[in-house]
Computed example of a mutant assay.
Amino acid sequence: MADMNLTPFDPSIFILTGISGLETAHEWISIPFSISYIIGLLGNFTLLFVVSKEQTLHKPMYLLICILALTDIATSTAIVPKALCIFWFNLKVITVGGCLTQMFFLHMFSIMHSAILVTMAIDRYVAICNPLRYTIFLTNARIAKLGLVGLVRAVLFSLPMPLLLRRLPFCANRIIPTTFCEHIAVAKISCGDITVNRMYGLVLMFLIMVLDLPLIVLSYGLIIRAIFRMSSKKAHEKALSTCTAHIFVMLMYYTPSLFSNLAHRFGQGIAPHIHIILSNLYLLVPPMLNPIIYGAKTKELRNKVGKYTCRS
């Protein structure tokens, strides 16, 4: 194999072990990885195709779903191909530059994902709680600007990570016990002081939780209150159905993400393979399920998808 001629002591490379402790099961583990990746790509590209083709779907909510789909495609593509190379071909070598690049984009897409979820929560709040001002307050142009702000924030928050790792010395141990380059996982194998890296990781997690989660919780709290005050049963059911899908997407992303981040830093008693599986879950499962959830729960989108997929 390609990595057999290189040793873990080569200063130009790192070694990704895959799922430590479950190396013998790598081929079996690759099956759900590849299936979830393929389903995610098909689902998200289908959403992008349908929304781009249908003029009636050129609305803020569907624009947000498209941005989320692009982020999902980028997130899963950042980790799955390399993971499958490890599982199938034992190609564990990754250059230092490749590792830092993967880490930067992975964290950037994750932070961008969070910003999109916040914007979607605000979008649903205005649509349900103040529908008369929806077309004035939330336009496609404004959504595009919010998306750009989210992207700039994601870049600024992610950029210090590879820069902080560049300053660290790496000695004999260059083995990263996971499937992808994550900031703390790489920092842990350094033979230098990683206090700054740990603090930045915690500050970043705190900022995301303080800036994003309260806005989401507040928005959906107000939405749920407004839904139960609706007199029309049909409007009540429609709003509740849409919000259920959105809330499920939020929980599906933030719950494993928060647990994985805390386990990485404070879960010394948790088996290494549990850490790795959790880290992969919150990066793999949302991209696979998001298009299914939105396709099933959003009637207008579901009908348009059916129009293309059910053609003879």
Score class of each variant (00 low, 15 high):
L211G: 01
T298G: 01
L215I: 10
I111E: 04
L84Q: 07
K145Q: 09
I86N: 00
K145E: 04
V203W: 13
S232V: 07
G201F: 15
I116C: 12
R142Q: 07
V118P: 01
A83P: 00
T46P: 05
F259Q: 11
R229G: 05
C129L: 12
I116S: 06
N90T: 06
R311W: 06
R142E: 04
V285R: 11
Y253I: 08
V155A: 09
Y134K: 10
I292P: 00
L251Q: 08
K53A: 09
K234E: 14
Y254T: 02
M112A: 07
H246W: 11
P272H: 15
I73W: 13
F105V: 01
C129I: 10
I247H: 06
T242G: 01
L211P: 00
T195C: 06
L70Q: 08
L213G: 00
T309R: 14
S241G: 06
M199I: 09
A239I: 09
A83G: 07
E237T: 04
I224G: 01
P256L: 07
L207C: 10
L117C: 08
P177A: 15
T298Q: 11
I208R: 04
I194M: 05
F137Y: 08
L283F: 05
T75N: 07
K233E: 12
F9Q: 13
C171N: 10
L64N: 13
L163I: 10
K145M: 12
G43K: 08
G18H: 05
R198G: 04
R142S: 06
L207V: 06
G201I: 04
I136N: 14
